[in-house]
Amino acid sequence: MSGAPLSSLSRSALHDRLVSPDGLRLHIGRFVTSIRSRHAQVAEGLATLYADYRLADDDRFCDYAVEVGRGDGLRKFVRPQSLFRFEGMQPFKPLPGDQAFAMLEWGLNWVFTNHAQHYLIIHAAVLERDGQGLILAAPPGSGKSTLCAGLALRGWRLLSDELAMVGLEDGLLLPLPRPVSLKNRSIDIVRALPGDPVIGPMAHDTAKGTVAHLKPPRTSVEEALTRVQPRWVVLPKFEAGSECAVQPMGRARMFMSLVSNAFNYPRLGVTGFQAMGRLVEACDGYTARYGSLDQIVPALESICSRPA
């Protein structure tokens, strides 16, 4: 990862790369991804949120080439769409043109999850402190991303806000830091937090309401090749007005909770079962109900500062 950061490109140079045949080539975690798009919103989102990501050298093999297109024929001028393409495939139906950057983020999620066969992949936010990993696993709507953003802005290293990638052989967590996906009210909550949060383009009226992304801290991006030993698994559950209640969770229950949030667990067969078993062995598990970030962040930091 020796190249200059994306922020070294002028806006016109960024645009030129995005429309060139080779695309804009960025190091994202351990992968080099080529991005092509004529959507101004994609350029804006990249300039804002990916400023610290390194440009790949010309002779580096590109792992994945993706494109966010505008649609066919006249449509691209009259009423542009956001069309995600990978290797000539279109895994998703098009979205409206003003959701182009969100489409890029979701498309990249799909690309990374579909190709990382070396990992057990769990739908979870992952952060690191003092060399130890915290996995926040929960279904959508649990406040996981907001909490993840809150911790990242307090100096935890962000590994991912969506994907815990657990090495099948070494059991370590692979960082794949990307912008943190926020929706609706949590956008304003995070914007108001200390730590100078930078928020990218807003996509309104998606199936989830308004979606925007938080820029990952620079150190998270720069340390993206350093893997992390998993240490804690927390299942957060936001309930408006609730008191904070953090409780230990048994390993069998932790196992089942993680299985229900694991993408490729079924496909990995007994290998996945064993990898999950090792992960659970390595971690202390907790459930955490909370009504505000002010309660839960100190509670988690207290758990995570106890000696192993």
Partner: peptide, 21 residues
């Protein structure tokens, strides 16, 4: 395959590809 912990066991049946608590 089966793994045991204090609060319970988890069983994996490769033929049915099912995981049971």
């Amino acid at each position: 395959s089966i793994l045991h912990w204090e609060d319970g066991c988890v069983l994996y049946d490769a033929l049915k590809t099912s995981t049971t608590l």
